[in-house]
Design a protein around this nucleic acid. Sequence first.
DNA 1: GAAGAATGTCTTAGCGCTGAGATACATTGG
DNA 2: CCAATGTATCTCAGCGCTAAGACATTCTTC
Lengths: 185, 185
Amino acid sequence: MWLTVTSLLRNPGAIAYPGAVADHVDRVVAQWAAERPDLDVSPMEVFGRLKRLYRVVDAALNRTFAEHGLDAASFDVLATLKRSGPPYRLTPTGLMQSAMVTSGAITQRLDRLEARGLVTRTRSDQDGRSREVALTPEGHALIERALPAHLATEVGLLEGLDDARTAALVDAMRTLLAALGDGEE
Amino acid sequence: MWLTVTSLLRNPGAIAYPGAVADHVDRVVAQWAAERPDLDVSPMEVFGRLKRLYRVVDAALNRTFAEHGLDAASFDVLATLKRSGPPYRLTPTGLMQSAMVTSGAITQRLDRLEARGLVTRTRSDQDGRSREVALTPEGHALIERALPAHLATEVGLLEGLDDARTAALVDAMRTLLAALGDGEE
DNA sequence: GAAGAATGTCTTAGCGCTGAGATACATTGG
DNA sequence: CCAATGTATCTCAGCGCTAAGACATTCTTC
């Protein structure tokens, strides 16, 4: 006697909610079960939903960013500088690590933000290779306006999730990220 | 006396794992608490981790796709055709809805796959506006090779997550997706 | 059955990102 | 103190995507 991930995951929602409608991922899994019954596709229950959730959330957040003349990339840079606290200065490398993008992406993000007068880039005194990126008053004002709206959008997205499931979701993602080595090195 | 989402979410991992190391999102939340203690940034516990998890997973899956001469977009199309079952034919619109991308993106994906001889595109008999996309024998063979490798990668990614948390993660994502209207319309 | 609306696909300009590599500066070891 | 190595940033070609719209075909309504 042995357990597959499948047996644990097959329609867990059906247990909690007997009348629950099958979602997109349920249909995908059912299709695979018909086409390749020899394969255990239960991991798709996790990753299929992760991908769809990310896309739905991303689209919703982008709508709010656009209302403030921003996109996710620009908001990310301004918010990272803001939350770093006084004097609201970071190096491109620091921004790069926080954003999980390449150095080239950060260079271009900063080009755009600098052209709009939202950040400044100055040479570092301590290290001639490095730059210091700082929020301008305009950048400061913009992120102060956009942040509460962004949080309101996030609260709205979580409206349909009860507190227990929200906590469980955070706990699982935290555990998984730790297991995958995120946040340590 | 009232509860904020914050009080429910603040370091839930610390309860389950007293010695748990703070992750990237914990640091972000702590920074906001110092800079803007008036704001409840607890929703970021969810969305910050969703974003990072998506990126880490995406990178890992792409590595496996690349080993088979594929990327996520191409794999997605081939897998969607494969799991649709005999005769392994779908319209671009069907592929578009499954992939959550625009029609232009599907056109370009199909251009690339057609050029590599992995799919064919023919006029539909029933509807002159529509096309029928079908797997070629080469496309069939490629997805048959890539799919088990892909599943193995997914199983590996879930290694660090115990069964209870895996089930809770799926349940929460399913609930949230349903609340956000995914999979119904 | 013709006009207008709707649908399915393709086209194209523009965007942000990656990967590879260039450049400038800093650090280390002999 | 110099050479070799490492680090921080920028450059740029190429990629896949979106948004807007073109075009052909089908459906709807009168």
